[in-house]
């Protein structure tokens, strides 16, 4: 079963967005986080929706992955939408619920907010869906590196992230094995009072922890044996390559931001 798991959310398909450097994609997400808030009327929001839809199409990632990413924050979107719908008193009254008059302006404002949040989430998902966790780690490390002189352990953070990512499948495999072993001994994680269930959970968690500590110790020894001595003087196999298309991507985002800005303020 674990043969096919994909770590993180990465969807390994070929697309122009996949081929971009992790750094340009991270920068693009940060820029978009600002740009999104420039949309404030029907026109700019329509442009925003079109632009984000184009990006999604360009990424060649199946739509269901984006929907999956939207689900957890769907409540938040719905909540802000309702809040705006109820408390904005602009335009004409459409109907009344629970003593609140709902204005057309409220509905529109709520929609705009929902679009912004949705766009942000989709943009962020685009980053994780089109960039492998390791590239993402390298990208973050590149941005953290300048802060090293202020004591930010950029290399250590990146290595920690990389090892955690590498260990996810191992941990899942082990969890699965312990679960089966405990079930074979008659443990049932779905029955009984809260107390007995907690007890069964303990029988699951403790071995998982014990093994993890043992592994951490072994791995530290193995790293020492292979000459690990921190980030100082270390070279890297993986290199990030900023290419022409990365510059083009950033320029496009900036141009898009300028367009929205002009439409909004002029």
């Amino acid at each position: 079963m674990l043969q096919n798991i994909v770590i993180g959310q990465y969807v390994p398909v070929e697309s122009p967005i996949h081929r971009l450097d992790a750094r340009s994609k991270i920068l693009a997400v940060l820029l978009m986080a600002v740009v999104v808030f420039l949309a404030n009327d029907v026109m700019t929001n329509a442009i925003l929706v079109t632009f984000v839809s184009l990006l999604v199409l360009l990424s060649k990632v199946p739509l269901r992955f984006f929907i999956k990413g939207m689900l957890p924050i769907f409540i938040l979107i719905a909540f802000t939408f309702i809040l705006h719908a109820l408390f904005t008193n602009e335009g004409e009254v459409l109907f009344t619920v629970l003593g609140f008059s709902v204005y057309s302006g409220g509905i529109i404002q709520g929609l705009f907010i929902a679009i912004r949040i949705g766009a942000l989430v989709i943009i962020a998902s685009l980053l994780t869906l089109t960039t492998s966790p390791i590239d993402l780690t390298d990208g973050f490390e590149a941005y953290l590196r300048p802060f090293k002189r202020f004591g930010v352990p950029s290399h250590e953070i990146a290595l920690m992230m990389a090892i955690s990512i590498r260990l996810i499948p191992t941990l899942l495999l082990e969890a699965d094995r312990i679960l089966k072993a405990q079930s074979a001994r008659g443990a049932d994680f779905t029955k009984g009072s809260l107390k007995t269930r907690l007890n069964t959970m303990t029988a699951f968690i403790i071995p998982l922890f014990v093994r993890s500590f043992k592994r951490a110790e072994d791995m530290a020894t193995a790293m020492d044996a292979r000459g690990y001595r921190g980030g100082e003087g270390r070279t890297k196999l993986r290199i990030l390559k900023w290419q022409g298309k990365d510059t083009v991507a950033i320029v496009l985002i900036v141009l898009f931001g300028c367009t929205l800005g002009i439409l909004r303020y002029v």
Partner: peptide, 26 residues
């Protein structure tokens, strides 16, 4: 333990780990 000494995400990165530590040129 084979699983407790595999540090990196792929075989290639793992072979590179020691070389990176030693500061070998790419």
């Amino acid at each position: 333990n084979p699983d407790h000494q595999f540090v990196a995400a792929t075989v290639r990165d793992d072979i590179a780990f020691g070389l990176e530590n030693a500061g070998v040129a790419r």
